[in-house]
Simulated assay, not measured.
Amino acid sequence: MPYTGKVAVGGPPDVHELTDLVISKVAVGPMENNAYLLRCRATGEQLMIDAANEPDTLLSLIGEDGIGAVVTTHRHGDHWQALDTVVQATDARTYAGRYDAEGIPVPTDVPLEDGDAVTVGRITLTARHLRGHTPGSIALVYDDPHGHPHLFTGDCLFPGGVGNTHGDAEAFTALLNDVEAKLFGELPDETWVYPGHGADTTLGAERPHLAEWRERGW
């Protein structure tokens, strides 16, 4: 079945088969978070993005091969409820944005700055620091040499807008500025976006609405 990015809590993962990388997306409750498992085809090494909840679901997805790392996109509790259990079971290294690490109760082995590389096997992801939703939110970019980029945005970008800044005008401006400059300003329309909740999108689908988002203020 072709990948759609549509998953439901309690349902099966959706699997995006790329030339060098396999991306499995699963939804976990109770806040319908997305968790992503990335597998390097060449080496079999695996990395998880956001061990959000339901550790049994995530460990089943990981399987017997284990994982080398878990990246937490930001400090909000719904994105790390299963982190301790997954790390204890797999001995994975933990990664998070430097300015959010103190808000995550599981110690961060590798604090990430803007532009830092995160590797899984022969695959390299690039961290982008996006201020506003939290002080240290990060997105991860996989620039596929065989196709378009793939972008994991946590809660910083969704279909229809940027992440929640709870009515804080300064935080909203910072987030939209960073998203415009570091994501829309550097990546093509074909870039596939994998958010922290809900359905996927592309930068091309969202780009025409940037001015509208800025005007509405959320």
Rank of each mutant, 00 (worst) to 15 (best):
Y3W: 14
G5F: 06
V7K: 01
A8P: 02
V9P: 01
V9C: 03
G11E: 01
P12N: 11
P12C: 01
P13I: 01
H16E: 10
H16V: 03
H16T: 06
E17S: 06
T19W: 12
I23C: 10
I23L: 15
I23E: 10
S24F: 08
S24K: 11
K25Q: 12
A27P: 03
E32Y: 08
E32M: 08
N33I: 11
L38W: 06
R39I: 08
R39Y: 01
R41G: 05
R41C: 06
A42T: 10
A42E: 14
G44T: 05
G44N: 00
G44R: 04
E45P: 05
L47M: 09
A51F: 02
N53R: 08
E54V: 02
E54F: 05
T57C: 14
L58T: 00
L59V: 06
L61V: 06
L61P: 03
L61W: 12
G63S: 11
V70H: 08
T72N: 07
R75K: 15
H76P: 07
G77A: 12
Q81C: 06
Q81T: 09
A82Y: 13
A82Q: 07
A82V: 13
D84Q: 11
V87D: 10
A92Y: 12
A92V: 11
T94V: 15
A96H: 09
G97K: 09
G97Y: 03
R98M: 10
I104G: 09
I104D: 04
P105G: 13
T108Q: 06
T108C: 15
D109R: 13
V110E: 14
P111D: 14
E113D: 15
E113V: 13
D116G: 15
A117Y: 12
T119C: 14
T119G: 01
V120P: 07
R122T: 15
T126A: 06
T126F: 02
A127F: 09
A127M: 10
A127P: 04
R128I: 02
R128T: 01
H129E: 13
L130N: 01
G132W: 13
G132L: 07
T134M: 09
G136W: 00
S137R: 03
S137Q: 05
I138F: 02
I138D: 02
L140A: 00
Y142C: 11
D143F: 05
D144Y: 04
P145I: 06
H146P: 07
G147N: 10
H148F: 10
P149E: 05
L151K: 03
F152T: 02
G160L: 05
G160N: 01
G163S: 07
T165G: 01
D168L: 04
A169Y: 06
E170I: 08
A171H: 05
L175V: 13
L175T: 10
L176H: 01
N177T: 15
V179S: 02
G185R: 00
E186S: 14
D189N: 00
E190I: 11
W192I: 13
V193Q: 01
V193A: 00
A199Y: 08
T201R: 11
T201N: 10
T202F: 09
L203A: 03
A205K: 13
L210R: 14
E212S: 09
W213M: 12
E215F: 08
G217P: 03
